[in-house]
Nucleic acid binder design. Sequence first.
DNA 1: CTGTTAGCGCGTTCAT
DNA 2: ATGAACGCGCTAACAG
Lengths: 336, 336
Amino acid sequence: MVTLATVSKVAGVSTATVSRVLNQPHKVDRNTRQVVEKAIEKLGYRPNQYARGLASKTSKTIGVIVNRFSSTYYGFMLDGVEEALVEYGYKTLAESSRETAEGENQALLSLIDRQCDALVIHTNKLTDIELAQYQNKARPIVFMNRKVQACENESIYLDNKSAGQLAASYLLQKGHTSFAMVTGPKSYHESVSRTNGFISTLKEHAITIDKDCIIESDFTVQGGYDSLCRLLKQQKHFTAIFFHNDEMAAGAYKACREHGIAIPSQISILGFDDAVIASHLTPGLTTIEQPLAEIGRASGLLALSLLKNKPEIFQGSKLFTATVKERDSVKDINRE
Amino acid sequence: MVTLATVSKVAGVSTATVSRVLNQPHKVDRNTRQVVEKAIEKLGYRPNQYARGLASKTSKTIGVIVNRFSSTYYGFMLDGVEEALVEYGYKTLAESSRETAEGENQALLSLIDRQCDALVIHTNKLTDIELAQYQNKARPIVFMNRKVQACENESIYLDNKSAGQLAASYLLQKGHTSFAMVTGPKSYHESVSRTNGFISTLKEHAITIDKDCIIESDFTVQGGYDSLCRLLKQQKHFTAIFFHNDEMAAGAYKACREHGIAIPSQISILGFDDAVIASHLTPGLTTIEQPLAEIGRASGLLALSLLKNKPEIFQGSKLFTATVKERDSVKDINRE
DNA sequence: CTGTTAGCGCGTTCAT
DNA sequence: ATGAACGCGCTAACAG
């Protein structure tokens, strides 16, 4: 095994000097530096990261937690985080919580054990209080697409209330006046904010939404399917439905097909996320787009800036804005 | 900071004993073990993984490389790997190559630097020879969904030739006799094998496929779209097209829509992978399903078995079999 | 069964 | 600008 000692012998210098050319090249004479670099090259020396971490107490690694890997929702954020870190020579250590509270706790501890210099985490199960306690430790923790009370400075997230308002404005603008909504679980802060935003804008236009027309679901295709069936059974009147994510909207497409309901002529559907499937549905799903990759990127940068205590690395807003991705699932009633 | 020494003092034993209760509990007396465990609990002690790795030369971590995170193709495999490792108390260190040769090399080196006990990698750019060289080092490398010459024992992959044969058999069985095919890049071994399998089965039935009707594409939606347009322009006759993945098939759907071609009445489409989008397309995409999660899981297990030199951890085949996931994009001509 | 001790490979003083 | 020496926290002989 090639170690610092091997290199130092070959180069005819001390290990301290080799270490310096690696970490503080400017403190080494040009000539000796070149000699050392040649030796490193020749031997194919690679520093042992564990020894490094042990001695320096830093790992140049940032831990990331997501619910799972097999969803592009998390995939886009992960890619965003990694992109940001690579620029600064940091590594990503990604772990999944398998969407359980236990998994979140374990992942958190495991990443801390692994000496991650900072953490970027997306969690749903742990409470704000529990998360805030972790935050109290030495290493910075950034909450990715999650707003944590008392840790606002470390939270990067979408302005879900505005997004809900945007959804309502868009549908109103298309001439709709009677609505239904299928939300995510109430335990998710996004769901609550989107709901509030949606309702508040309707209220501004003196429109109320029947309580029976707001259904809490679970962000899954099946959940969306079931919700639409329930809405249909109720026989309430509405011309447009706002779904809190695209998977649920996709489930609604299926239900519509089975019930012989045409989208958007008989019912308009608005999704959320602009997931990969949105563009593949027929008709194309109009949806509220959320910049997941940028949220990931910003989270990575914020972690770095906190870690190095360099505010200049992360500048800009911690609050992201949604936009409308217009396709063909919302009817423009004005044009009739 | 709480270290082994802290614990040992509180428990009134030596650091070696504390280390033993952590790693070889059976070698410690029940009573002293309990005392130590109490101290660990009380102090909230967590072992420093870097010190551990440095001293023991093992990290209980397995590095994984994928092209990127934002595709469920890799996501499913990653989830599979992690699931397998968690059972054995191992961690996943995932890194993306961003689908570049440089990225693959860097990721490989970086994971080795990080003392990963084994590697599970999915690569496309590096040649078999380059990969085999890495394999020659101390730590085991498993090639996930990739067949590497000279490393067959460490390759876990789908039997792509059989899968191609299956595709042909299925279409033949549905009464089709005239075909087109859109493949992935020739540099991908999967593409070549699928093509060979497909053609060989046709040949068995005395059917040849016009060379102009085989188009090499790039696994992207746009690529599939372009390929179908090209096929259409040629005015050759065929009733069914086999796409080497579902993304390209989705692109074909779009092209069909624009050209007013009905699926499956005018043209039948068969995909590959059973990606998430397949079920959301209209009509549902019939596709050759590949068990990605299981391939990931098997790769993880194989890595563990190699690493620990325990064949019993991984038993079963390294070759996986594809199946047909039937939906509505292939017409049954016999029924006319 | 338990304690002592010597590294693991590197970064970092402190001298020179 | 360079080298000697120590310590990071832990595991692994070796004694006892």
